[in-house]
Computed example of a mutant assay.
Amino acid sequence: MTIPLSVLDLSPISAGSDARQALRNTVDLARQVERWGYRRFWIAEHHFVNVASAAPTTLIGLLAAATESIRIGTAAVQLGHHTSASVVEAFGTVDALHPGRLDLGLGRSGHRGAQLRSAGVPPVPSQDRPVQVRDGVVLPPPFNPGQLLDTSRLAASLEALYLPGAQPLPYAEQVRQIRDLLEGTYTGSDGVHLRALPGEGADVQLWLFGSSGGESAQLAGESGLPFAANYHVSPGTIVETVQAYRDAFRPSERFPRPYLVVSADVVVAEDDATARHLASSYGHWVYSIRSGAGAAEYLDPDTAPPLSDQQRRLVEDRVSTQFVGSPGAVAQRLRSLQQLTGADELVITSVTHDHADRLNSHRLLAREWGLSHIRAA
Score class of each variant (00 low, 15 high):
Leu208Asn: 02
His353Arg: 02
Tyr171Phe: 15
Glu270Gly: 13
Asp302Glu: 13
Leu10Trp: 04
Gly80Leu: 09
Arg250Met: 12
Pro306Arg: 11
His81Leu: 14
Leu181Cys: 04
Asn360Lys: 12
Arg276Gly: 00
Ala156Asp: 15
Val324His: 04
Pro141Asp: 07
Ala166Phe: 15
Ser326Cys: 03
Gly110Val: 08
Val324Tyr: 01
Ala293Cys: 12
Ala228Asn: 04
Asp272Ile: 05
Thr352Met: 09
Thr321Met: 03
Gln127Leu: 15
Ser288Gln: 06
Leu163Cys: 13
Pro306Thr: 13
Pro12Ile: 11
Ser11Ile: 06
Ala217His: 01
Arg254Asn: 14
Val261Thr: 12
Ser320Leu: 14
Ser336Met: 12
Gly73Ala: 03
Ala156Ser: 15
Gly328Tyr: 07
Ser223Glu: 08
Gln174Gly: 13
Tyr282Cys: 04
Leu169Met: 12
Val242Phe: 06
Ala65Arg: 05
Tyr186Lys: 02
Ala166Val: 15
Ile178Leu: 02
Gln243Val: 11
Arg176Pro: 02
Gly184Lys: 03
His111Asn: 15
Ser152Arg: 07
Ser53Arg: 05
Leu314Glu: 04
Thr241Leu: 11
Ala275Gly: 02
Gly107Val: 00
Ile348Ser: 06
Leu139Lys: 04
Arg312Phe: 13
Leu365Val: 02
Asp128Cys: 14
Val286Pro: 03
Ala220Lys: 03
Asp128Thr: 15
